[in-house]
Design a binder for these strands. Structure first.
Lengths: 124, 124
DNA sequence: CCGCTGGTTCGACATATGTCAACATAGATG
DNA sequence: CATCTATGTTGACATATGTCGAACCAGCGG
């Protein structure tokens, strides 16, 4: 049960995903919408997680082995802990391939968060 | 010293502001960049704050009186506390006009955060 | 000047969070 | 199987965070 989890900000709709919420500027968010969206912002609200996320996102092919990105100044268990958080927030997925575990970003989530901030734009 | 504070994600450059960091996907963020950007994400990482922010951002003219937005299910001191946090994060500015205090969004900050997520796009 | 209404600040407190060391697990390799 | 490397999980702990009630400050209307 690693990647089977539902992505908080998005909801599967058969073959794709749809954003959870309208742009912040469109109308006041409801409590539920805020709850959902805040989970993602919160996940990126830690410097270490942000670096990890950026490292994965900017890595070749949008995926990276833990061993490639764990140089962020905290202990290995802490890295693991943060990666888990990012996964739970729906920002990353992980897959084990042999010895190493690879994390990759969910591109549509990035686009959805972007839309949340700046409104409708070319994305996804 | 209410609005004189420097905006974390942006830096004044004479007449405008420039983004603090490149898009997340461009390259791994440095520790400093992450520290800066995480502050903003963190500010939006609470449901109540997100609702307050959205309420201000979606309000007419991009500004709202506290009295207009304080219906988010927490006590009034808590609202004030969260608005302060948003202000400290550089997402809002406040101004007192007579009896009421008005909060408004910093539009360029929204655009900057959007760019951080989705890369260079039509913004601002 | 007094009280009223809108907002902020303070103090207290329960809970969440980030961190590490120690232990556990998964493959690879001898 | 023994063991080594790469990751994840657990338990403990210090600190940060969200929340409230009470006290406090700012205009406004008598």
């Amino acid at each position: 049960m690693s990647n089977t989890k539902v992505l908080p900000l998005l909801e599967a709709d058969g073959q794709g995903v749809v954003p959870c919420c309208p742009p912040l500027t469109e109308r006041p968010m409801t409590a539920d919408e805020a709850e959902t969206a805040a989970r993602m912002f919160k996940a990126l609200g830690d410097p270490v997680r942000l670096r990890l996320f950026s490292a994965v996102a900017s890595h070749e092919g949008g995926e990276a082995c833990v061993c490639d990105i764990s140089d962020v100044g905290v202990s290995q268990p802490t890295v693991s802990h943060h990666l888990k958080k990012l996964k739970e927030a729906g920002l990353l997925t992980s897959e084990r391939r042999g010895t190493w575990v690879y994390y990759r970003v969910e591109p549509s989530v990035l686009a959805a968060m972007g839309r949340l901030l700046v409104g409708a734009q070319a994305a996804a």
